[in-house]
Design a protein around this nucleic acid. Sequence first.
DNA 1: TCAGTTTGAGTTAACGTTAACGCAAAAAGC
DNA 2: GCTTTTTGCGTTAACGTTAACTCAAACTGA
Lengths: 354, 354
Amino acid sequence: MGRHTTIKDIAKVAGVSHTTVYRALNDKPRISRSTKKRIVSIARRYHYQPNVLAQSLVLGRTKTLGLVITTIINPFYPELAKGIEDTARSLGYNIFLCCTNFDISLESRYIDMLLGRGVDGIIFTSAHTHDPNITRLVKDHFPLILVNRRVYGDPMMDRTDYVVVENVKGGFLAVEHLIKMGHKRIGVISGFPDSSAAVERLEGARKAFIEYELNPAELLVLEGDFLKPSGYEAAKKFLSMREPPSAIFGVNDYMALGAYEAVLDAGLRVPEDIALIGFNDITFSAMKGIELTTIGQKKYEMGSIAVHTLIDKIEGRDGDKARQITLEPELIVRKSCGYHLRGYTVPHPKALLK
Amino acid sequence: MGRHTTIKDIAKVAGVSHTTVYRALNDKPRISRSTKKRIVSIARRYHYQPNVLAQSLVLGRTKTLGLVITTIINPFYPELAKGIEDTARSLGYNIFLCCTNFDISLESRYIDMLLGRGVDGIIFTSAHTHDPNITRLVKDHFPLILVNRRVYGDPMMDRTDYVVVENVKGGFLAVEHLIKMGHKRIGVISGFPDSSAAVERLEGARKAFIEYELNPAELLVLEGDFLKPSGYEAAKKFLSMREPPSAIFGVNDYMALGAYEAVLDAGLRVPEDIALIGFNDITFSAMKGIELTTIGQKKYEMGSIAVHTLIDKIEGRDGDKARQITLEPELIVRKSCGYHLRGYTVPHPKALLK
DNA sequence: TCAGTTTGAGTTAACGTTAACGCAAAAAGC
DNA sequence: GCTTTTTGCGTTAACGTTAACTCAAACTGA
């Protein structure tokens, strides 16, 4: 692959020192108009491209970011990744794609690789609620931002940057909708207990039960892994209960769609026999023939905001304060809860008082 | 963020030269067991991580690959990307994610960035059939591999590595299936005319017409952009024809699913009123309630093979010969063509002779 | 015992940039 | 016309590795 032409090659051709070439190509002063023009044209002729590695070595920054996600197979991530990639590119940054496959030791190894490669910052979407990897980085003041995740524990909580939807509210909205549709026996397909998104959405579900004077202990909860097959399995378990739920809240759409299949496979209908609500509003949830009611969040914007925020921190804007951004979730009513058939049946008891 | 500890820092602590540290940490000879042990323990204590940038600069390789795709939003790519990412990681390589958004000038800028960053090779899935960017790289003997794409034109065709499905055969299988289901008036939602995948699949469709003694000029062809909305629009156009097709072949599933929606929106049913077949077998095509008949290809394996092949070339195995790998497509019969209702109605005329 | 080899280091230069510093010649200021 | 400043370069050293080369001391073998 024929070594690339370097600044020194050009210097030789132009008969000047490499510093002069450097000045010519970087609009630095202390160079005459004429030599500059000459050098620039030579550089163009030789298709000169600066070696970013060498630049990075001396400048101490690489203009690259790490994107650490669980698995790109989960359709939530491509949409997020697009926001991240578009924005990063527009700001001159490149993205290392790192999929941890839910393996925290792989996450750890990835972080080491990213640090060794000198990334300027890392975007995490796979953080555990207590993640030693994150703790280490935050302690070192390494620029990072969590997307759709938060970490708990005393010093970390208010020192880590993040951009999230208000998950508790989202979970609340989802289950509130089910309650309003007349459901009292509700199954939740949750996620890993160390995923803040899953935990907070479940908490929102509990809050809705309390708000509507139902017993949150009666929520049926099964744990999934955010992927479709686990939603399928969980729904199958729900359906085989002696007293199955009449509605299922999948803590993300991908699992909810798995549940959808399980319901159909059991010979039941959505929403007539089982209502179904998800979270994330992935593209396919809107498909005709599916039309999953869900909690929407702005995934592209979340990615974009995350990158802007991270790069602000990297480039030292706005000082050292923590940037914690919370976006609004939104109930998107489609057909999987039967609203189009029946409308709301149970008004909010407290709303009656107003 | 607190400069990382370097080999020289450790040298100072250990009271030796940096070369000795290098030898200790890289299992080089010419060092005593005892100093080696001492240095290794110091390195561990300081969490030493080699600076890959510096290594890359002197070694002339970075152990990174560029992955150039159109847009990660197309569900074909996440599955492919997973194969690529898993395999690359297992071989010690990292991936730069580059989405060109179908913009060839952006592709060009991305390539320059990747080269400037010193990637060891590039995986292209967004190549045009005549792509000056590719031509340039191939001429420079830069390691690259095309996935799901081929480039045409004399010198390039047999000098570029690629891994593809046999697209012509896939297109043939798709339209053959439609013909066997009794369809004669068939619409094809194709892709860009400079996408080899689209062109070849369309060619396969034509071949099927010829094979079954139909007139390939009667194939109705509309151009899409591989994304769902374009499939929707194309199907709408088909349906508004004075004599609409009775079956539609979407050159990828994503567009076929868009067509699916258009059919439903028009108040028609799949497959009773319109048969539908896609290509790629993305996850959602299998969903209950959709069950798109399609041409399957091994996406994960394609990614994995691509990375192995590319890295073989990078690391100089098997010399300089072109590596061109073709995988078998597979007809996956689900419900969108009505096979479960009717079975095949038109036997292959030539098959009758056997 | 003494040449030859091996061991255990250190010194130095490279990779391709950026950037501080030096220094003549030209320009500016009085 | 002489000092002072500016212009237009070149020299040199960093950044953190890898690796070729040196070289004394310790070991080997006859």
